[in-house]
Each structure stands twice: as structure tokens, then as C-alpha cells.
Design a protein around this nucleic acid. Sequence first.
DNA 1: AGAGTTTATGTGAGCGCTTTCATCTGTTCG
DNA 2: CGAACAGATGAAAGCGCTCACATAAACTCT
Lengths: 333, 333
Amino acid sequence: MSVSIKDVAREAGVSTASVSRVLSGKPGVGKATEKRIREVIKQMDYRPNLGARGLVQQKTGNIAVVVPRGSFILNNPFFSTVLDGIAQGIDQTDYNILMSFTSTQQKKLLEKKSVDGIILFAPRIEELTLESLKKIGLPIVVIGSYVEDSPFPCVRPDDEDGIAQAVQALYQLGHRNIGFINGPLSSMHSINCLNGYTKELNNLGLDYLDENILELDEFDASKATNEISTFFKEQKITGVVCASDYLAVGAIKAATTVGLSIPEDLSIVGADDVPISSFITPSLSSVHVDLLGIGKKAASILLDMLLGKQIENKEVVFKMKYINRATTSSPKE
Amino acid sequence: MSVSIKDVAREAGVSTASVSRVLSGKPGVGKATEKRIREVIKQMDYRPNLGARGLVQQKTGNIAVVVPRGSFILNNPFFSTVLDGIAQGIDQTDYNILMSFTSTQQKKLLEKKSVDGIILFAPRIEELTLESLKKIGLPIVVIGSYVEDSPFPCVRPDDEDGIAQAVQALYQLGHRNIGFINGPLSSMHSINCLNGYTKELNNLGLDYLDENILELDEFDASKATNEISTFFKEQKITGVVCASDYLAVGAIKAATTVGLSIPEDLSIVGADDVPISSFITPSLSSVHVDLLGIGKKAASILLDMLLGKQIENKEVVFKMKYINRATTSSPKE
DNA sequence: AGAGTTTATGTGAGCGCTTTCATCTGTTCG
DNA sequence: CGAACAGATGAAAGCGCTCACATAAACTCT
């Protein structure tokens, strides 16, 4: 049995109330008493039991970060960078991050009362999910997918504009036949990217060709190298933009496989500008977005909600910016 | 105010004790009563308050995963893959993962009573840390760095043997002048790697040359490309093994920068075989280890400790295995 | 100096739950 | 048919903490 507030109180010759006051920095304790209490606390190595505190204060001190199941997302730097941002965002608070991986664990968390709020990584939110989320009755911030009538604030990159920038960048380099490798349209991100691609094509007066688009089942291109290879063989595109850096890395590999050299034969642009992108060979042209900032923002919104503040912006969109690196160049004559 | 066990009890016309019994699957509740209680629970959408339960049961239901501060580690696939393993390991239990980033947050977690056990990612454990860890008095499993007299079980890859395998692989390809790019020797991992390198050189009857070794300040080679470039320019090595895949990616970039082509002019081997390694261009030869397994094992050990079981193996070492890919070949004549 | 005010401290209830113990009912069996 | 027992249920204590309230002590001001 570890030392409790009672033990400290007894040892210091005061009531538990006074100890509690010192602990939570509340006023109403004499200088001398406070000093003595602090000494006893340190000397006895006393640590407050958060569960008990939570019980009376009606909060847990935890916020859940829930991510879709599967090693893919965990390994995805998009996720880890945003998570890092979240961590930084709550660093100065008393909150802890409770990780939750959907499927089994989501239930655990959400079917019990163990968090005060939730940050949800969601590629997409369906009606059904939305309903059950509402039922939870906790502050929720969504990262990634804005849903029209969602009551939950959302923070996400401006994918649509990002992809548009990528298309435009290729156009300005002289490309006229620009392909697009997308993730599954079941994800909002893919939908936004596709919109960006289509719109910008339109803006530039380029033809939209179905065969220039490859839609993969997953964002993890490692499984799709073959598909991408085939895609490249059949197309006469000179540049391709990808809905994520992961996809772009897969594209590089596939292109190499079919004997295309980059960027001479094919220009490739990624999206999200994950840290390693600038770093692989050849370094990847991509569309940068402040992932760390997204995490921080999500955290700060949730924190505000937890404080009961009214959230003005239901949707915070982070601007993206094209970064030119070594996978892009003007097309060969 | 949300619905509590009392509300359920009242609604079902029983005592809270019975509801509690049903909840925790304890015997002693009649068939009919149980059914009624379950219905009421569902109908009222009742969820037990874990904090309150923890209070009486003297546990929190959380285990902490503490990682060193800094985006690097978070972005490191080594970490995320192991974390995934941990998550899988506790998936079937009632435990939740509380993330903790050292510096600020470690304190939060450890200076309060909010977890039952800890999984600690530690590049190295110093005397001082060891002492304070002991004081915590919680079950702790360390990932990464075994310390001689540590009372805590440790699970880690067999870096020493892994690097040795890499050196040997290069040797068998015909390399006789084999370099080594290491992380900071402040980390046990680096020390083990260095040992493996040195020993294997010795085994093979190769000369150990100080100038063939580059020791970087960080494991994040993105910042060290220059250093690596310089290193390559000055050396006449034909092959180099790196203490991690990240370092290897940096080495590829650096080599390219100084005009070395891979693997013709220089063979490169990584370590840890992180998912993306097989995937970059050229695909990276590396030393594979079951990172997911490491995570699972760490979780299962901690779970055992939490159950009060005696841990037999204070140290679990995962075998590594060299994987030959595209960054290695026989040296040019 | 006495009423009023501030400041320091203690008391005790109660947060939502589990668990021990007592009670009550119905069975079994000699 | 009554003792003995097993199973179902409830009453109540208490986990460690906070907080509203009561009390006591020390000032302030006219």
C-alpha cells in the first residue's frame, strides 16, 4: 500500500484538506504550514492518485488519441508527426495521452469512462460512426476528414489546393500529360485530392483522361508496386502527382522497375512532405504542410473544448506549399 | 452528470452490488436478475467509471509507454513498429496505453499514480535514471538497452550479431575494406553495434581502422549528410554498414551527392529493416529483426509482471537476419 | 474595545465503484 | 419434518481525494 494524502497529513500534523490545498495550489494555507507539508510530501515520496482526484472532479485527466487499426497508420509519418504535435500541444497541461487503436481498443476506451476528450484520426466518417460518436457525449476533434454536418471540429491539410499546386508545378515545368495516383476513394483525403487534380486540370485547360488516374486500394504503396508499374507502362504521361509521399515512394520504385528514370522520363510529386521525403534518393518533390502544427492545433482545440469554450471554427484547414526537389524536371523533348 | 451504477441499480430494482457482480462477471446473481440488469445497462447506456473501479482495486488499468522526447523517435519506424507490437500485445486485455514523452510528461506520469506498469524505450539507462526508476516501484520493461545490474527485464534486438552478419555479408561479396557508420556511443545500441563490427572484423581477419568508422551525434542522419559525404570522400572503403536504416538512407543520399553510385561504387547495409527500407530506391539491404515481436514480447512480459508472475528471463534478445537487396554487390575490380 | 473582516485550518460528505459480511430464501437429505 | 447448506441478494464500509462549510485565530478600523 502506497502513501496516501492521509499519511502525509498525519505526518505533517495537518488535515488532508490542507495537503490537498497545497497540492493543487489553492490559497488558504499558511507559509510555514505549506513549507512543512511540501517537505513531508517530498520526504515520503508521496504522489497523488489521479484516479481518486478524477473521481471527485468528474474528469480523468486523459485524452484519447484514436487511430485506425493496422501497422500502416502507425508507421505512417503523417500520423507520427501529427501525434508529436498533439503531444507538444498538451505538454504544458495536466492531460495524458491515451492511445487507442480502433477495433478492439476503441471500444475499451469509449465504452468505459476513461477519457475526457478524443482526438480522432479518421480517413472518413460514415453516418453510422457519426451517430455513435455523438452518443459518446465527449468533446471530439477530428483529424483528416471534414464531414458536412459533423458537430465535431476538424483540422486537416488543404489537400485539394495542395494537389492543385502540384499539378500546376508540373504544368509550369512543361508537362501536359499529367497522371494522378490516388488512394481509395473511401477516404475523404483521396476525394479531396481527386478534386484538386480535376479542378486544376480544368483550370489549365488540360484534358481529363480516366486512364491517367490510378486509384489504389490502400495508401500503402508497398503492396501496389506492381499495379503502379503496369500503370506506368500503359500511360504516356510525363509527370505524375501522388496523393501521399508513401504513394510517391512506391511510384519511384515502380518507375525504376519498368526502366523509367526519374526525373528524366517521369516527374513525380508526393503530398504531405513527410520528413524522410527530402531525404530519400532522389529527394522527393512534394507538397509541404505543417503536420506538427496540425497536431498542435487539434490539441489546442480539444483543450479549449475541455475548458468549455465555444469553438468558432468548426474546420481548420492548413495551407500546403509545393516544394521542388529532385524528382521533377521539365519533360524530355 | 452521467449514469452511475446506482442509477442502474435503482432502475433494475436491485442493489449496486448485484450490478457490480454482473459487470465483473462474478457469480452469485440469478439468471433472471442478470438478464434484467444487462438490459438496463444497455438501455441506459451505462459505462463503468474506470477511475472509481481503479480506486478500490488499487490499480489504474493503464500502462505507460514512455519514449524519449523529440520528433525523431516518433518518426522512427523502429519505434512505431514496436509500439504497434505493444498495442497488439495488450489488445485482449483491459489495459490501455498511456503515451508519455520524456521531459515534461514523464514526470506527469511518474510523479502521479496513473499507471500500473511501464514500458520504457531507452537508448541507454544511466545510474541516476536507474535509481529513480527503482524508486517508482512499478513493474517496468525496458526496450532497447540492457543494463548489467538492472532489475528490469529488457527486450532488444541482437544488434551485435546483426551488425556482424552485415559485415560478414559484405565480406562474402568480396569486400575487404568495410566501413561503419554509427550513432552516438551514448546509446547502448551503438555500443553493441560497434562491438559487433569490431568482433566480426577480427573474426574475418580484417584490420580495424579508426578512419573507417564514422560516429554521428544522432541517429537521424538527415542532419548528417554532410558529415557522411566527407567521410565517403576520405575513405577508400567499398562497403559500409550502418547502425540503423535511417543512417543508411542518409548514407545513400550522401554517397549520391559525392558521385558514388550504389552499389557499384559502394555497398550499403542498414540495420533494423524498417518497412520502408525494402521500398526505397534502391531497396536497402538490411538486417531484419521482428520489431513487432519485440513489442509484443515486451507487452507480454509486463502483463506477466502485472499478474505477479516471476520473470525468468531478465533479457530477451531477438535474433537478426541479413536481407540482401539492391544496395549491395561485389566491389568493382 | 468591540464589531467586522480576513486568513488559516479542520470536519465531513461524497465522487462511483468493489467487496466483505450478514441476511434471506429455497433445497436437500437423513 | 427440521437441520444444514448453497445460492441470491442487500447493506455498508471504504478506496484517496476534493470541496463546501464550520470554526478558530488574527487583524482592521472606527
